[in-house]
Design a protein around this nucleic acid. Structure first.
Lengths: 244, 244
DNA sequence: ATCGGTAATTCAATCGATCGATTGACTATC
DNA sequence: GATAGTCAATCGATCGATTGAATTACCGAT
């Protein structure tokens, strides 16, 4: 393991034991889950130092000591949140990336297909960063790790780089450029930035749209404009010259 | 005043006094400036709670008590940093926005001009968020205020909204849409997001480009691709249909 | 079915460390 | 001598973590 956190697998009760049967009200797992979600919100919003364990416990309707009991320490809780976010993201968009990589490896893709795949990636990016329920918390947590790298940085970083690499392959094909061309990497970031912006600058976005939170129609609008911009890069020439 | 910070103008020595004369080596002002820059870095990097006054003082080669002496409190220092950032940004790109607003008010702009003005805005956005020296610190501080609104949020927010409004006017003209159309606001954010991404996700960007920090050529590349995308939105129709 | 031992879980009280802030003495400058 | 500025020492508050007891859930023995 890359970071110096103690392994808490021995401290935590053996759920895999053959004698274990789910209790009628399995308090432990539920408390652990409530703590995890409260921590996801707090760490994403206030950062590792800014989020206090007391506040997290209070929001989760749990006792302060429950954090140490269920996770081992504040740092271990932070790591658990990171792994949770990555796991959830993988569950939502992992299959698409794998499918795309497989098709790219096979090589049976023309530019129209590449463009369509790229749009699906951006599409699902919107769904996993700006969607309802808790997915906006995932996005904020991931972006905070970028702005303020912590000991669990590697967990989120390696996951994001995986998606980045797939997008780079698509863009490279679309622009007839090498996969490792800096211009390709930059263009991938501009594509991602279009979506990430709505996750990072939520207060300004909400004010501009005159809303309190994203609705279905807002996501639809963002998705439409973001994917539309993909049509406009590479392969499709422009009519008329650029001004200036 | 909109936020609940005590007025420290009485605590701080009266620099405006007509009896004040600059000392030969004006230690006070220099220390204050070092503290301001150290705080700008720390607040942007670790957030308000995450940044400790002791660390800020240490980085500024100053004593802990110097923060209270020169600013009044940690919160007041935070406010001073926010006002400093806004002032610096205004100095760098305020004139352009004023000029654009004036020309828009006058109404003597065709679409080619609008597109060129929009490119200049994005252009200077790159320069004031990804430039050398300390400007990347400005960008990170501003974006952190968005992710983690603090009592000084209004200071940065009102400034950013001003620029946002100007861009909305330009995009509205370019797309023949109403200024208050949500689609216009969303498109402005996608344009900004292209640039902001490089400020927010620096670790991933640096890794992808295989560098430690931005160079002139990197900024040039980002600027080229970001402004190129402006040519590709609105007014300039596409050849061929969009796939999918 | 139910009782009792054991493990799982929760809880209030408390620890040492660190935080922002304060104090009063100290130095330098005019 | 008066002011501006710096500094080490220290304060109360809050932090993450620990403790030990109380409570709850589980399971084999009866």
């Amino acid at each position: 393991m890359t970071i110096g956190l103690r392994d808490d697998s021995a401290d935590v009760p053996l759920r895999g034991s053959r004698h274990y049967r789910r209790a009628q009200q399995d308090r432990g797992t539920e408390t652990r889950q409530r703590l995890l979600l409260a921590a996801l919100d707090a760490f994403g919003r206030y950062g590792f130092d800014g989020a206090s364990t007391r506040e997290i416990a209070r929001r989760a309707d749990a006792n302060l000591a429950a954090i140490v009991y269920h996770f081992g320490s504040k740092e271990a809780l932070h790591l658990a949140v990171a792994e949770y976010v990555v796991a959830q993201m993988r569950a939502k968009k992992g299959d698409l990336l794998i499918e795309i990589d497989a098709r790219l490896d096979a090589g049976d893709v023309d530019k129209a297909t590449v463009r369509r795949l790229l749009q699906r990636v951006v599409d699902i990016q919107v769904e996993t960063m700006l969607g309802d329920r808790e997915v906006d918390l995932w996005g904020r947590f991931l972006m905070r790790e970028q702005m303020e790298p912590s000991p669990v940085f590697d967990v989120t970083f390696s996951y994001m780089m995986q998606g980045h690499r797939t997008m780079r392959r698509l863009v490279a094909l679309l622009l007839d450029q090498r996969e490792d061309d800096p211009a390709v990497a930059v263009r991938v970031f501009t594509l991602l930035g279009q979506v990430v912006m709505f996750c990072v600058a939520q207060p300004m976005v909400m004010r501009s749209l005159g809303k309190q939170e994203f609705g279905m129609s807002d996501r639809e609008l963002i998705r439409r404009i973001a994917t539309e911009n993909i049509d406009r890069i590479g392969g499709v020439p422009l009519v008329g010259d650029a001004a200036g």
